[in-house]
Design a protein around this nucleic acid. Sequence first.
RNA 1: GCGGGCUUAGCUCAGUUGGUUAGAGCGUCGGGUUGUGGUUCCGAAGGUCGUGGGUUCGAUCCCCAUAGCUCGCCCCA
Length: 434
Amino acid sequence: MNKTTQPYKGARDFYPEDKRFQNWMFSVLRKTVESYGYEEYDAPVLEPTELYTLKGSEEIVSEQTYTFTDRGGRSVTMRTEMTPSVSRMVAGKRQELPYPLRWYSIPALWRYERPQRGRLREFWQLNVDMFGVSSLEAEIEMLKLSDDILKAYGAKREMYSIRINSRIFMDYVLRDYVGLDEVEAGTIRRLIDRMHKMDYVAFGVSIESAMNPSQREDGSPEKLLKVLAARTIDELPEDLQTHEKTVQLKQLLQELSNRGVTNAVFDPTLMRGFDYYTDVVFEVFDENPENNRSMFGGGRYDGLVGLFGAEPVPTIGFGMGDATLENFLRDHELVPALPNQTHIYIAVVGGDEVIAKAQKIITTFRQEDVNVAVDITNRKIGKQIETAVKKGIRYVIVIGENELDTDQLTLRDIQSSSEEAHSIERIISLVLAK
RNA sequence: GCGGGCUUAGCUCAGUUGGUUAGAGCGUCGGGUUGUGGUUCCGAAGGUCGUGGGUUCGAUCCCCAUAGCUCGCCCCA
């Protein structure tokens, strides 16, 4: 028997204080996405392994998942992301669901990785997806919603940036504009993804060596570097300005700005993997240098539902991990004091006999939605109050023989260290007011 | 999967150039005579010095391995 009290590597225990924080964090997420009409769904923690090999990444499945054989000989995998599951669910009821679908979930996910800052083996992830809209209005809503989530926590614009790119646009740049074959393009995509981690000269050298000199047109590396250097769409080379996706991205940024999202920018170096995204991709970056990674991101993936044999559905969505969000909130000091959900702690003088007689009062509180914990230890009164203080419970009422006789109770406010006698009705409204 | 740093009380950390009973602060528990916490005073509990092996008369300290934490790399759905 292993006697360690530590949780499993990369997984966390949530003591009441931690769970209180998580509940608060999630409640803000829920409130914000539900204000846009998104509905919560869920799926099993275990999925058949084939669900994750469906879209290709064999290597990821074999090396970065918890995969095992069940008692019936089936290979199962603990969910590492929600997108395949939700795509499966939509495909399963493709013909009967009322589009557009606005769905969200906050599942616990498992990935077999080496833990580091902002990255654990068990983590929670907000997933927001819209199915059934192919127009740019879907992108606008997704990004506006992302922005509203951070604003709901009290984040200021300068704390984060929203970076946007298009896979179709970048494919056009790499294949047609620069003239690369698919193998070269794949290598270059990986390089671009790591661009900000390399120095500029080394990056240029890598780009050049990744391109086959005999096949490319003269000046291709330079053409590409010029595109990647663009900080805005207007800075893109003249001959790219009229491309359909350029025009669309410009329109997207303009409309976001019109709706108050002024920190969204075009970023040609944004790659975001290379699996199921089909067009617009975006990432929200924490501008705090302590958190040197994107906080969350997503994009359009129009092809996934169709993989299940159903008629394809245009889809856009994003995922937001709890660890990176927590880092963001703590480092920017956006976490408020979180009160204990118990409103009143009742300290008892006189033991079990008094507790028995006080039941009528206690029941009245509970029926009025006041959460009441009774100290049944029969310790001295000072200890009982100290317990309430440590638990972070705001109000204390001492009940003894004296209180049983009157209809007034003395409500002690731990926060202000004050005491005042009130009727039970008055106490209920005072305590619930906060 | 690769590399760096770390691991001594519940927490944050001292310490021993290898020597017999390993310390502090905070926290916890109890008390300062019987119905009021966060101040103060007194007292107590709590450690096989991450784990396993080696060197040595003797290891918490030196060496090796291993685990965990942490930071970075790879990867990041």
